[in-house]
Structure formats: structure tokens, C-alpha cells
Design a protein around this nucleic acid. Structure first.
Length: 504
RNA sequence: GGGCGCGUAGCUCAAUGGUAGAGCAGUGGCCUUUUAAGCCAUUGGUUCAGGGUUCGAGCCCCUGCGCGCUCACCA
């Protein structure tokens, strides 16, 4: 590994420590408090007049160092808080004082013992009487110094280049506290989703990621190969068909939170792998799922943000139920002037779009044209939480038809901030209709081979055993986290977003 | 995949086609309550890579690589 000059200096320090009989990477670390606990314990002890000084051993990473001759200050940081260390030659002696100056750098991990006190300026600090190296850092962290302003750590000249931040996320996290906050919110979000569903008797399950037949969405899959079985396998593009098999099996309410993989374009809202939540609920339909959805998102906001409003791209979004409900057909009439019910074939709709001067991909099926109208003219205007409902049958192969209208299905999508958030429907449970839909999909997408929905005989068999009426739901968790953290790109809410491989 | 933009010291950023700089970090020194500590001194560069134009290229041109934005794609 190539080392730059700064690293070489630190490597020399490691050698000199070892020469002096000091192990820069000891196997143990001791502490009496985590930093936050120490601060709280000190504040509590302070209230009691005449209490003994609070002894503590603390650990953490050195984030700032201010040697001043015969005294020195440092700030260390663990996973809970930042705290100041105070070193004085009177307490630690000349030898340790010079070791401190010689051996210790920003980024090193240190263990320090002493008593807690307040400095002249009132900052709670550890008055150190002994300390040792816990782990020497060879590479300097990509940040200058930090300071505390109103309780918040402000780090100066810190890692900023997005490419390096994503490629070296460890350094990004180590140096940018606000990035760590995003991922704490992400974890809380997932926990809140689980709590919400668990409280309603859903059970969380795990279904195959490697699948012999992919399905449940229209997307290109990643293909892989099992050597011993000599069998092609696909990374799942959705959980849908497996979760609904479980409903047939008698689990009335199931959900899964996990990774989907789609072999498609990468953008600010698309990563090749992304986290999805899907749930299925027997004896529910899309109306009850709508209610459940708005309550679930409101619950998550309560738990994660402590508020039902959130800021996103300069908009204040209010997720308080009930959300606006808008029939898709009506929404399109208002936003485009086209009534899709008057254009029941792709040709007719294409002509209408052409007449209005709307962009479209020629010879697309009707459903795809409608989809592009939504995406171009309706979706961007849906800022406050909105459900669009009743979607065309030909882009909803797993949704149940609307009674009395063979062209429509009981399906809705939820939108916020001009972005699609979730997709749900009354699930199709008629095995003969389902078989017909698979055949239609195969026909419609013949030209676009990779994206066509493959026939899944086993899924049809499961349905043939008898599938209860039910509602199902899917949501991109990453997009929800983007909304909750006001992040404009999915890469900011993925710990390790996909980046192109670098040539060595 | 198309279009536009970007790539300079460890980090953040400067530099009309004319000697590549600053702050922080680092190194040496002074400094016993500092907090982006301060003061003095100082090291550090294949300007993403490769070609070209030019007396001379970080800057202009071409190719490649990577990233960003955007379009296409995307239930």
C-alpha cells in the first residue's frame, strides 16, 4: 500500500512507540462511562454539595488537540458524545507529557482516567492522571478541526467531495456528524414501520432473494448462476408473489422489509439495490390499505421526527391523515385535459397526446402511455400527500379488476413532494383471471423481452388452492427516508451507494 | 446510453497561456484553563491519465477514466 508523507510520519511514530515498549494496538480497552453517561453523571453529582470528585475512565477518538506547553487540551469522541480532556504536567509528569505530544495525533483512539471537573469556561472535562493509546491511526481523517456551537459539532474543511464521501463512507461518517444522523433516522424509520405492523398482528417474514422465476414488478432482473445445480437464478425484483403464497398458507398478515434488485438506470432516486417494504393483509381491500398507509406514515413521522410535518425541498409536507384522494382518471383530466376513458386503445390515446403536443414513446401500450402522462404531468404537482386511485388494468397485472369496469383495477399509488412513494391494490385472487393477465403481459411486452412478466405456474397453483381477498402494499423505504431527512438523492440515505468500479 | 459541467497539496479551495498558492492538517520552536487556542519558522504537487497545439499548458484541442447534474430508461 502506498503511503503519503503524513502517513509515513505516523508509521514512524508507531515504530518509536514500540521501541519504547508501548503497544499502539492493545487488545483491551477499559472505561467506566460512555462519554454521554459521564457528562450526565457529573451534572447529577454537581447538584450534591460537597460530593467527592467523580472518577472516570473514558475512551474515544481524538478530534481536537491543543497542546500549550505544560498543559494540553484534547477533545475525544465516542458513539455518544464529545468530551474534553485536560492534561497537566503536574499530574502526569514530564515523560507522559512528551509522549502525548510525540505519539498522539488526531484520529487516534485513547483511553484516559482521572476525575471530572469544569474548566474556567465551564466546560465539563476529564482531568487526566493517566492515559494510553488504544489504536493508532495511520491515515489522517479528512477534516481539519472541530468546534462546538450551541451543542452542535461543527467540523471545518471537512470531506466534501461526494465521490470520496460515498467511496470512503467510513471517513465520511467519521468526520460528518450530520451524515451519521441520517442513518440513525433510517434505522428508526425501519424500527417504526416494524412496530406499527407488529402492533397490528402482522408477522415479519423472509422470502427468497435468489429466485428461479422473478416477478411482482416490471423490471429487468440481475441474473446469476448456481454452479452445482447448473441453474440460472434471478435476484428478486419484488417480494410480492412469495408473500402472497404465505397468505394462501394461512398467515393472514405478513410483511417483509428487505432488498430488491433492479438492473436498470441509476439516478437520484434509483439504486440497483434498494430497500422495500411490502405487506399483505387478508380480508382488506385498497380502501382499508389506504387508511393503513396514511396512519403508518404518520406513525413513522411521530416516532422518528416527533412531528407530522416535514420539510422537503422547501415544501412543508403535512402527513396527518386523511390524505387527499384523487381518482387517477380525474387527476389526468385536470392535469392534461385527456380523459383516458375516451381512449381505450393505445392508438387512440397516442393520437390524443399527439394532438396536445405531449411527449410519448411511439407504439407504447396504452398503460405505458398513461404511466408517462402521470409521470410527466400529474406526479410533479402532487406535493402534499395524495393517493391516486383506480389504475388501468394493463399496467396492473396483479391487481383485482374494478367491479363494473373491466379496464380498471382497484389500485392506488401514494405521492408526496412530487415523488411516487408507494403502490398498493386489492390483490387479484382469481386464478383464471391471473393466468389471463400473465398471458396478456407476455403479449404486450413481447417487443421488450427482458421486462415482460414471466408466467409463474407455481404462483397460479398457490392461488388455485384458494386465496382470500386481500390488500397488498409496497413502498420504497429509501424514498421515505429521503423525505424524512430532506435529502435530494437516494445516495445520501444509502450507507454504501453503488458506484462504478475504479480501474486499479 | 446522450447532453452539460467538474477533477490542483492529506482536507477545503485559489491561480489572463508566462516561476503552482492560501487556510487547516503535518514538522520544529515558544506557551500552565484552551476550545477552529495563539505566536514564530517550515515541509509538502506526476495539477485524474495519455496524446496534441504552442517558444511556453493547471488553463486551449483530442482520447480515456471517475464523479455530479440532466435526458432516456425505470410499476
Amino acid at each position: 500500500m502506498e503511503r503519503n508523507d503524513l502517513e509515513k510520519i505516523r508509521l514512524e511514530k508507531i515504530e518509536s512507540m514500540r521501541a519504547a515498549g508501548i503497544e499502539p494496538y492493545p487488545t483491551t480497552a477499559d472505561y467506566t462511562h460512555r462519554n454521554q453517561e459521564a457528562i450526565q453523571a457529573f451534572e447529577a453529582a454537581e447538584q450534591i454539595v460537597g460530593s467527592e470528585p467523580l472518577q472516570a475512565t473514558l475512551v474515544g477518538r481524538i478530534r481536537a488537540m491543543r497542546p500549550m506547553g505544560k498543559i494540553a487540551f484534547a477533545h475525544i469522541e465516542d458513539g455518544t458524545a464529545r468530551i474534553q480532556l485536560f492534561f497537566r504536567i503536574n499530574d502526569i509528569g514530564e515523560a507522559l507529557m512528551s509522549r502525548l505530544k510525540e505519539d498522539y495525533d488526531l484520529g487516534d483512539y485513547i483511553e484516559a482516567s482521572g476525575h471530572l471537573f469544569r474548566t474556567k469556561t465551564g466546560e465539563i472535562s476529564l482531568h487526566v492522571n493517566s492515559f494510553r493509546m488504544l489504536a493508532k491511526a495511520v491515515t489522517p481523517l479528512p477534516a481539519a478541526k472541530d468546534e462546538e456551537v450551541d451543542g452542535k459539532i461543527v467540523r471545518h474543511a471537512t470531506l466534501n467531495d461526494p465521490e470520496m464521501r460515498y467511496r470512503q463512507r467510513y471517513a465520511d461518517l467519521a468526520v460528518n456528524p450530520e451524515v451519521r444522523e441520517i442513518f440513525k433516522i433510517r434505522t428508526k424509520t425501519i424500527r417504526a414501520l416494524q412496530q406499527f405492523l407488529d402492533e397490528r398482528d402482522f408477522i415479519e417474514v423472509e422470502t427468497p432473494i435468489l429466485q428461479p422465476i422473478y416477478g411482482g414488478a416490471a423490471a429487468r432482473p440481475f441474473v446469476t448462476f448456481h454452479n452445482q445445480l447448473k441453474q440460472e437464478l434471478y435476484l428478486r425484483i419484488s417480494f410480492e408473489l412469495y408473500l402472497k403464497r404465505l397468505i394462501v398458507g394461512g398467515f393472514d398478515r405478513v410483511y417483509e422489509i428487505g432488498r430488491d434488485f433492479r438492473n436498470e438506470g441509476v439516478s437520484f432516486k434509483h439504486n440497483p439495490e434498494f430497500t422495500q417494504i411490502e405487506f399483505y393483509m387478508a380480508y382488506a381491500n385498497y380502501h382499508s390499505i389506504m387508511e393503513l398507509t396514511e396512519n403508518m406514515v404518520a406513525y413513522v413521522c411521530d416516532q422518528v421526527l416527533g412531528s407530522r410535518t416535514l420539510q422537503f425541498r422547501g415544501n412543508t409536507l403535512d402527513v396527518t391523515p386523511p390524505w387527499r384522494r384523487m381518482e387517477l382518471r380525474q387527476g389526468l383530466i385536470e392535469s392534461t385535459g385527456i380523459d383516458i376513458n375516451e381512449h381505450l386503445t393505445g392508438e387512440s390515446l397516442e393520437a390524443a397526446m399527439k394532438a396536445k403536443g405531449y411527449a410519448f414513446k411511439p407504439t407504447s401500450p396504452r398503460g405505458k402511455l398513461i404511466d408517462s402522462l402521470i409521470g410527466d404531468y400529474l406526479e410533479p404537482s402532487l406535493i402534499q400527500p395524495t393517493f391516486l386511485y383506480d389504475y388501468p388494468r394493463d399496467i396492473s397485472p396483479l391487481a383485482k379488476s374494478k367491479p363494473g369496469d373491466p379496464t380498471m383495477t382497484e389500485r392506488f399509488e401514494g405521492f408526496m413532494a412530487g415523488m411516487e412513494l408507494c403502490n398498493a391494490f386489492t390483490e387479484l385472487n382469481d386464478p383464471l383471471d391471473q393466468e389471463q393477465r400473465f398471458l396478456e403481459m407476455g403479449r404486450d411486452y413481447e417487443s421488450d423481452d427482458e421486462e415482460r412478466h414471466p408466467m409463474d405456474e407455481d404462483y397460479l397453483r398457490a392461488m388455485s388452492y384458494g386465496m382470500p381477498p386481500m390488500g397488498g402494499f409496497g413502498m420504497g423505504v429509501d424514498r421515505l427516508v429521503m423525505l424524512l431527512t430532506n435529502q435530494q438523492t437516494i445516495r445520501e440515505v444509502l450507507l454504501f451507494p453503488h458506484l462504478r468500479k475504479l480501474e486499479e
